[in-house]
């Protein structure tokens, strides 16, 4: 990362555009704020049929929700702030690990060793440390709880405190970026245009609020040594939802609902 290359560029303004800038940014901030205020970072469990309310007269979606309900019991919504994949995935993964002490321990060890491997890749020790420390603190606080129920409550509480939740998101973004860079020959095939894997990481993975695509999911799963099933629900004509296991052929451990632009957590029957 010491040779970080950024786009810097001559910046052009069309006549009359400048005064618009502040207005556009102000409006974006306002929209952002409204979203933030109306959705918790990670919500409570809700029944699959609670999704119906969003599509009251949309037959395509209603049909698909019916299909979804035959496979899944609950959905847990995440805040649509561009971090939803990272937040939802880490929440879902840690929550599932809690019910198996051995698996949790294996993951804890993997997480413990992750800082040094990021530093070896050239990430600055000193900023990585900040996020790593909080990540480990959260894992420790959750696993120190005497019962599974209390652990889950602690997880939910910490993931809804911005100070902890966003640190978890940043650290997972860094782990994902590290994985992409470690296997850059493989991942370069998935990047459109002439951007390098490093550029892609600096522009689309490491910054907060940048949305996630297949490539982020594959790398995040690899970094955490797990698999995700993404269930697609869109306006496409088929009557059923479409399932994708990432990385291909892996056993799904976490299930996510994808609707264009957004991920929520799913709980199988």
């Amino acid at each position: 990362m010491s040779e970080k290359f950024e786009l810097s560029g001559e910046q052009t303004h069309q006549e009359g555009q400048i005064n618009q800038d502040e207005l556009i940014l102000q409006q974006q901030r306002q929209i952002q704020q409204e979203i933030s205020e109306s959705t918790p970072l990670v919500g409570e469990l809700e029944s699959i049929s609670s999704l119906n309310a969003e599509y009251s007269s949309d037959e395509v979606y209603l049909q698909k929700i019916k299909d979804l309900a035959s496979k899944y019991k609950f959905v847990r919504r995440t805040r649509p702030d561009g971090n939803c994949f990272f937040r939802g995935f880490s929440y879902g993964y840690i929550e599932k690990l809690l019910s198996n002490k051995d698996e949790f321990k294996t993951f804890y060890t993997l997480a413990e060793n992750s800082k040094s491997s990021l530093v070896e890749l050239g990430f600055p020790q000193f900023t990585v440390e900040d996020f790593y420390d909080t990540f480990m603190e959260v894992l420790k606080r959750i696993s120190d709880m005497p019962t599974l129920e209390e652990s889950k409550r602690e997880l939910h509480q910490l993931f809804n405190e911005q100070g902890y939740s966003d640190y978890m998101v940043v650290y997972l973004r860094l782990l994902t970026s590290g994985q992409l860079q470690r296997e850059k020959d493989f991942y370069s095939c998935f990047i459109e245009g002439d951007r390098t894997v490093i550029d892609f990481c600096h522009q689309e993975v490491e910054p907060m609020y940048k949305e996630s695509d297949h490539i982020h999911i594959m790398a995040a799963c690899s970094a955490m040594n797990t698999g995700v099933r993404v269930v697609y629900m869109d306006r496409g004509n088929n009557k059923q939802v479409t399932e994708h296991d990432l990385p291909e052929g892996s056993t799904p451990y976490v299930h996510l609902l994808y609707r264009p632009g957004h991920y929520d957590i799913l709980y199988p029957n």
Binding site: E6, L7, P124, V170, Q203, P207
Partner: peptide, 13 residues
Amino acid sequence: CLSILTDDWSPAL
């Protein structure tokens, strides 16, 4: 005019 100061800023910088 430098993208890491706005769009491409990351908390790891």
